[in-house]
Design a protein around this nucleic acid. Structure first.
Lengths: 334, 334
DNA sequence: GCACCGCACATGGCCGGCATCAAGGATGTG
DNA sequence: CACATCCTTGATGCCGGCCATGTGCGGTGC
């Protein structure tokens, strides 16, 4: 592959001049510039980002580590982050921890080796140990979909307590008094906050916390939802409504209900979370708590850029608002 | 951030020795090794991949450029590629061309600057101009979900002609004589091959090509499917079945039919393509042509590794077989 | 006692860019 | 004509690792 030296040789100039043609074109006379540009074109020369990085001491890559690339919600987050990053001339490396702390640790190590400009992180490790270890490298990061504790770094999140409250308040208003909460892995903050919101909504309505029955699942995908659905069907005193920690779980629950002949929403109301595109296209269009995913990704990237670009950066915690989208899966039986 | 020199200084050895502790541990005495390792740990030293890359002349990153990250099919491809790459100690940079030739060109430029080890590519530019330009850089690439022409590079694909034939043969067997083909962007090879398969199936059954009515859409997503659904409803001599170039389109069509009160499959049969997880969870479980997406991603990564790792690599064109998964959306009316 | 050998570690060059500074040529000015 | 100034270009060093080559030292054999 052609290097800057080859270009210099063919154009009959020094490497410094070639470098200037690329980075400071107005420092070079038009004639020389043209000649060098022609050679660059002819040889197909592309500057080496590694060498630039080494020299400049800062990378032009930003990393995004999400919990689950199979979840369209995170795909939207990635979209937003990518847009913001590329506007600033940075590339984004999107990786998937698949909710595994080990994978997360692996990737964080990879990012440290790459000396990425910064990391947008949806933490998979509730213990915070991975984050703690990563902090030592001095690579800035922004927490996504999770509030930072203290003021050690920036975060962009959605008010999960409010989201949980919106969902359950809606169900309570529709007359439900026994609600299952399919929660996903117990360790995740989002899951805990949404439960808290749900409990708040129950308390508001004067209902006891026992009205909410939590069913944890190992993963946050459709298969886990199907499994949770079966468990709900097996419960003594079957609840009349299900609130799921995300739409994938909700779709799984819905599928199980449908297959078992349990009518939704007449016999079982369902509310999901995230409002992914498929929620509207489900067997029964799914009521869901919408999160501004693209905005979240974009804001996270912007916060990171601000942190690494500007002199005086103060860590911020941005909290966005969720919104309930009511569809047929939770409408009161007529 | 700590560099190898800092480690050397703190451990009282030379940089070469530190390098050897990391890369050739058996060349260093145990005592020195221990001491150096302790310092590495204490300082949180991580070697710089940029510097290694520069020195070694080869990167440890592989790129994957997909047509649409919003499509779970490509998420599966990414999963497979990632697994294979990481097994070989490489990282994967997943990017999304969103079917835009311009974005594709942008990303290919980025990859050239990064001097990635190679690129796994689902081409968005039917003209082949982007590929042509990229080839000059000498970075190896493998075509994914598309057969390579000639023997200039490797490819992994699924037999789209067969897939299209499977879908339409199934519909013809069920008695359909007028079938719409919601095809997506006309430029994509997959789309053209699936149509060819569909036409083959019609010919087999002694039906004229006019029995297939093609409805192109700009994108391959749910929204485009909804739009196509409306167009189908507006057709004079409405077809009795729809074959969609992917499941997202099919879900969109299904949604439109459902909203308009057209019964599926009684009034309109629908067959999708890809068999994404959501296909089974749709309003009416979707018949679909399953592609081995994870395998495809993994094989592509392996081909690329073989090409860059081994001495004598011959370009290969791997073609995998699709499989029809029949669900309710296409079952004959009783 | 001397030559030789191997081990453990040190040293210097190099990868490919970019910035800094110096040098050279053209032009303007007194 | 001498000298200053500006504009353009060239030479050099450095970023952070890794590799090839040195170097010093203790042990061994004759």
């Amino acid at each position: 592959m052609a290097g800057i030296k080859d270009v210099a040789k063919h154009a009959g100039v020094s490497v410094g001049t070639v470098s200037n043609v690329i980075n400071h074109p107005d420092m070079v006379s038009e004639e020389t510039r043209k000649r060098v540009r022609a050679v660059i074109e002819r040889l197909g020369y592309v500057r080496s980002e590694s060498a630039r990085h080494l020299r400049a001491g800062r990378s032009r890559i930003m990393a995004l580590l999400v919990l689950d690339m199979g979840n369209p919600f995170f795909v939207d987050v990635a979209r937003g982050a990518e847009r913001a990053a590329r506007q600033a001339g940075l590339g984004v490396m999107v990786c998937n921890s698949a909710q595994s702390p080990d994978e997360e640790a692996d990737y964080l190590g990879l990012f440290a080796e790459q000396r990425v400009r910064g990391v947008l992180l949806t933490p998979a490790d509730a213990s915070g140990r991975n984050i703690e270890a990563f902090r030592r490298h001095g690579i800035p990061f922004v927490l996504v979909d999770r509030v930072a504790e203290g003021t050690t770094e920036c975060s962009v999140s959605v008010d999960d307590v409010l989201g949980g409250a919106l969902a359950v308040r809606h169900l309570v208003d529709a007359g439900h008094r026994s609600i299952a909460y399919v929660s996903g892995p117990a360790g995740l903050h989002q899951v805990r906050d949404r439960r808290q919101g749900a409990l708040n909504a129950l308390a508001e309505a004067g209902l006891p916390p026992e009205a909410l029955r939590e069913l944890p699942t190992e993963h946050l995908d459709v298969a886990a939802g199907r499994d949770a659905g079966s468990r709900i069907l097996g419960l003594a005193q079957r609840p009349t409504a299900v609130f799921c920690a995300n739409d994938l779980l909700a779709l799984g629950v819905l599928q199980t209900m449908y297959a078992a002949g349990v009518r939704v929403p007449e016999d079982m109301a369902i509310v999901g979370y995230d409002d992914i595109e498929f929620a509207a296209a489900a067997v029964v269009p799914l009521t869901s708590v919408r999160q501004p995913a693209v905005t979240m990704g974009a804001m996270a990237a912007e916060l990171l850029l601000e942190e690494t670009e500007s002199e005086d950066h103060e860590h911020r915690r941005v909290v966005l608002q969720p919104e309930l989208v009511v569809r047929r899966s939770s409408l009161p039986a007529r």
